[in-house]
Amino acid sequence: MPVGDFAPAGSVPLTRDFFDRPGPEVAPDLLGRVIAHGPVSVRITEVEAYGVPGEDPASHTYRGRTARNAVMFGPPGHLYVYFTYGMHFCANLVCLPEGIGSGVLLRAGEVVAGAEVAVARRTAGTSRAVAPHDLARGPARLAVALGFTREHDGVDACPPGPVNVLTGDPPAAGTVRSGPRTGVSAAKDVPWRFWIDGERTVSPYRPHVPRRRAS
Rank of each mutant, 00 (worst) to 15 (best):
H133A: 14
I196H: 04
A172S: 13
N164M: 03
V176S: 10
P180G: 07
A172P: 08
V144T: 15
Y50N: 07
R141Y: 03
V163C: 07
E25I: 09
G10K: 11
A67K: 06
D5M: 10
A131C: 11
V144R: 10
G198I: 04
G38M: 01
E25P: 01
D5E: 11
V71D: 01
N69V: 00
A120N: 04
R193M: 08
S102C: 00
R107T: 06
A7D: 11
D153G: 08
V40N: 09
V47Q: 12
A145T: 07
H60Q: 03
V163E: 12
A131S: 14
R63A: 02
A58Y: 03
L93Q: 02
G4H: 13
A70D: 14
R200S: 14
N69Y: 00
V209I: 14
M87Q: 08
S102P: 01
A145K: 04
D134F: 05
E55I: 05
P39E: 15
G125N: 11
A143L: 06
G154V: 09
Y62P: 03
R107F: 05
C90A: 09
A187N: 15
V52Y: 07
V119L: 10
G168W: 06
H152K: 04
V3Q: 09
A9C: 07
E151Y: 09
T123G: 05
G109A: 09
R137D: 03
V12E: 14
D29W: 05
R107N: 07
V3G: 13
H88W: 15
A124D: 13
V184L: 14
P207Q: 11
P159G: 10
L93V: 15
L93E: 02
A27N: 10
P22V: 14
V52D: 12
D153I: 10
P76C: 11
T15D: 15
Y82W: 01
Y50S: 10
G10Q: 12
F6A: 13
A118K: 02
E98S: 09
P210K: 05
P24M: 01
A214T: 13
P8Y: 14
S59I: 00
P28T: 10
S102L: 00
G198S: 11
A9D: 12
S11C: 13
R206G: 02
H78I: 00
G38L: 10
V52T: 15
Y85E: 04
N164W: 09
V104C: 00
F148N: 08
V94Y: 02
V144L: 13
F194W: 06
V12M: 11
S41K: 11
V112I: 13
A108I: 06
S102T: 00
C90R: 10
V117R: 14
A136I: 13
A124R: 15
W195H: 04
L30Y: 03
C158G: 05
S178K: 12
R150W: 07
